[in-house]
Structures are given as C-alpha cells and as structure tokens.
Simulated assay, not measured.
Amino acid sequence: MGFLELTGAPRCGSRLARLSFRILLAPAAAALAIGVAALAAAATTAGALDPNDMRCVDGCAGRQTAGVGSRIAITGDGLATVSEVEFRGRSGSVAATPTATGRHRLTVDIPFGALGGRPVVVTQGGRSASVPKLLRIVSRTRLPGRNSFDILDTDVGPRHGFVDDGRSYRLRYRFRAYGPRTVRVRLIHSGTVAHSWKSRGVVPYTAHRIEWRGLLANGRPAPPGRYRFQVKSPHHKPVRAGKFRIFTGKFPVRGPHSYGGPTQRFGAPRSGGRVHQGQDVFAPCGTRVAAARGGRVQARGSDPVLYGNWVVIDARGTRTDYRYAHFLHPASVHQGERVRTGDEIGLIGKTGNARSVGCQLHFEVWPHGWNHGSPVDPLPILKRWDGWS
C-alpha cells in the first residue's frame, strides 16, 4: 500500500486528481492574470507621455511666441506626472516647474535664460518627451501692452441666406493681446442687437468661432435684412467683423423659366367668369420646385379639373400662405409637415388644366391666409426673389 493510499488521496491518473489539481491552480491563475493586467496598465501609462501642442496664454506676442516670464500651456496625454519642463539655454537646458498640471494640460512660466526651441517635459520617473511645436522667445519690449486688444483677422460665412432656411451663420476671429481677454460679440441688425455672446478668458492668437442659427430669442426666424458682427473687449471700441444678408424668400422654380404672356398674369379672365388668382411660371417638366418660404403645410390635394397636384404652405411667423399647383406628381410634403425655405416640395408638371397649356408652376399669395380675404398679385414678389436667388 503506497503513501497516497494511506492518506486517502486519489491517484494521479484519476479524474478526481485532475479536478483537484485544477481547483488548486485556479486562484494562482487569477492572481497571475491580475498581475499581468496591472503590468499592462502600468506599461500603457508609462508609454502615454505625449505632448502634442503648445500655445502662449499670458504675455504673448503670438500663438507660440512669448517672452521670459510669459506663461505657456502644453497639451497632450500623460502630463499629470510631469515635474519639470526643460527649455534650451545658452549652455545646456534651463528647467522650470509647472504652475499647474493635469492629465491633458499643464502650464509653465518661461524661466530666465530660456532661448526657445522645443520644450521638453520630464516626469517624476525620469521619462521625457519633446513638444513638437517650436517656441519663439522675444524681448519683453516686443510684447503687446497688458490692456491691448487688436483684431488680426475675421471671416463670416455664408454671406447670404433666406428667412427660415435652417442654416447657421458663423464668425471666425483672432485677436492680438497680452493674455486672455473677455470678449463680447454682438450681431447687429437695423441698429439693434439681434444676438450677443460673451466669453471670459479667451486666448489670443487662436481662432475662435461663433455660430448663430438665424433665430431670435423667442425662437422665431430672424427677419430679412443686413446683419453685421461686432467684436469688443472691455475698454475698447467695437470692431466690425464681417456681414451677411438674409433675403425674404427664395424663387421657387429652380431652373430655366419664363413668365409667359398676359393670360398667365394675375387677374386674367378665365372661363365661367373666373379670374386668374396667381402667376404662372413656365419651366421644363421635372424641374425642381422649392418652398419660397419656410413654414408648415396647411393643405395638399389633387384636382384633375383646375389645379392638378397642389400644396399650400404658410410663411412661419406671418399670416401669409403660398399655394403651388400643377405638380408632376402629388406634393412631396404632407399636411402638418414642417418645411424650410428652399426645401424641395414637388416637380414642375402640367396636371389639371395645365395639360393643354404646358409645363408650369401656378403660384398664389394669400396675405391673410389661404381662402381668407383675397389673393394678391405674386409677380412683383416672384421677380424680386428671382433677382437674388
């Protein structure tokens, strides 16, 4: 009788022995896996030092141009353990301790004796990495005054749009200053402020963007007219920063067209004692028709005798309704649907009584709402829209 038999332990070749061996190994394997994961995490952290950008934030003569004593910000990854930043000096390097550190950003003041070049960040563990951007150090006499504020460049786009077309208008600007400034941007229309933005701690020499969605404070579409941006900092006069224009409406026929003759005009006599309540615009069948003004679809239908496929859309924020008729197919928008200025609503056709005349759009303007009061002659409005769109 062997020792295993005396102790009651199972033989090595048995299933129970193999199961016991696996049970004994399980905690060790788990501990090993945890250790490997910790080592991997440590290795990842150790290899994550990656400064990838730099800019001056106080005492600046440019985005990467500063003087001794100026403050710069270095951004990237793995910067939380950085203990010093080394700058090129006349004989070796000159080190400075960061004024603030975080995982993705640190700030440091440029020490006396620094000559510029690519700063090097050094961690507590001795790892180091160079910033890819070149720092240029100039005499402090070349830095702007502490209260200075000068616009360097601006850009506005788009340059024109339409009431309730859903587009946004953007301003990009850069300015020159000693350090971060409070900046107020105003959007001016007809001598009044249509919208304003105020930002504190705005960094100089960096492109900043403002976006306006074409809406008033109450959420309604902004009125037509000329708009301009102004940029201002405290104790400085506002600076014009670009302008754009919003037009009242968009010409609905999006292709070559003509206005026909006298029989296509508003008020022209029709059979049965009727008169023409709109203006016909001839264009090839299949030409796209856009909503002249954004709003909501009030009605749509198909009339085989007179209007063919038609739709009525109101002008948001007004009482005016617009009727479009003779579409090739039923309107592509449905009752209650929200429509933006310029959205496609159908195609030029010759349905209804246009089948004997030719491909056209019949367009009506109802200033007090469709079938309320009387329509007005749309030709002057159409020609005005035609002139700018």
Rank of each mutant, 00 (worst) to 15 (best):
R209F: 08
G342M: 09
F21G: 14
V289S: 03
G260I: 07
E211V: 09
Y205R: 07
L106K: 10
P367F: 09
P284F: 08
Y178Q: 04
A222W: 02
H236Q: 06
G2C: 11
R88D: 14
G225D: 06
C60I: 13
C285S: 12
C56K: 03
D150N: 13
R181N: 07
W385A: 10
A325G: 07
H195M: 14
R274E: 10
T263H: 08
G8C: 10
R11M: 14
G255L: 05
I110L: 10
P262E: 12
R300I: 01
F87P: 01
A26W: 08
L115Q: 14
A114R: 10
P98W: 13
Q360E: 15
G214I: 03
P238E: 03
G191I: 01
A37Y: 14
A30P: 02
G267K: 04
G369P: 13
V138L: 05
Q335H: 12
A26G: 12
T206M: 11
G62T: 06
V193G: 02
A325W: 05
P378G: 09
G2D: 15
R300P: 05
E211G: 03
V193L: 07
P111K: 12
T318A: 11
H257Y: 11
R228P: 00
G219V: 01
S190H: 07
R103P: 02
A331K: 03
F162E: 03
C359I: 12
A95H: 07
A268H: 00
R172A: 14
T182P: 01
A28C: 13
R186I: 00
I72N: 02
T341R: 13
T341G: 04
T320R: 12
L39R: 13
L379K: 14
R340Y: 12
R265N: 06
